[in-house]
Simulated assay, not measured.
Amino acid sequence: MSKLLLISIKEKYVSRIISGSKTIELRKAQPKVKAGDTVIIYTTQPKKAVTAIATVKQIIKLSPQKMWERYENNLGITQNEFEDYYQNSSTAVGIELCSIIQLDSEILLSAIKMIHPRFTPPQTFKYLDKFQTFRDYKNLSN
């Protein structure tokens, strides 16, 4: 069964993902997803909205040094940013994204909270129940 992964990303990196200059989203922890799973991209402050969806192409798990050596042109960040992020880590996790679609209309956090008042965007990522998400969407559109 495929999963829905909700992931929080800073606006400058989301722009790079949408433009295609960033195809690998970096994390310190590996999400339990596989090729073909869906990623819902939540853009953090100041936008605070779901802005895009993508598909997991693959999960890459390497030492930070090897990640940079092999994929620096796909990471969408500077070497200094990369080194700062992984300074105390022995493992770098990359979520390679494909089939990236920018939503025609962003889904604002305030709109999500109308359906789920206790919803909070994840610090890094969280899993969603796609059947519950579909039911909520149907209820919103009725």
Rank of each mutant, 00 (worst) to 15 (best):
K47L: 12
K47W: 05
K48V: 07
V50F: 06
T51Q: 10
T51I: 04
T51W: 03
T51N: 04
A52N: 09
A54M: 14
T55R: 09
T55L: 04
V56R: 11
V56Y: 13
I60Y: 14
I60N: 11
I60G: 11
K61G: 01
L62M: 11
L62R: 03
P64S: 05
M67Y: 02
M67C: 03
M67G: 06
W68S: 05
E69C: 01
E69A: 12
R70P: 00
Y71E: 04
E72S: 09
E72C: 02
L75E: 08
L75A: 06
I77T: 11
T78A: 01
E81M: 11
F82E: 05
E83A: 10
E83Q: 07
D84P: 00
D84F: 11
Q87A: 07
S89D: 14
S90G: 05
T91N: 12
T91S: 15
G94F: 15
C98V: 05
S99P: 01
L103Y: 13
L103G: 08
L103N: 08
D104G: 04
E106R: 15
I107L: 15
I107N: 09
L108K: 12
L109C: 07
L109D: 03
S110L: 14
S110C: 08
A111D: 15
A111I: 06
I112N: 09
I112E: 06
I112V: 15
K113Y: 10
K113H: 08
K113E: 15
I115V: 14
F119S: 04
P122S: 08
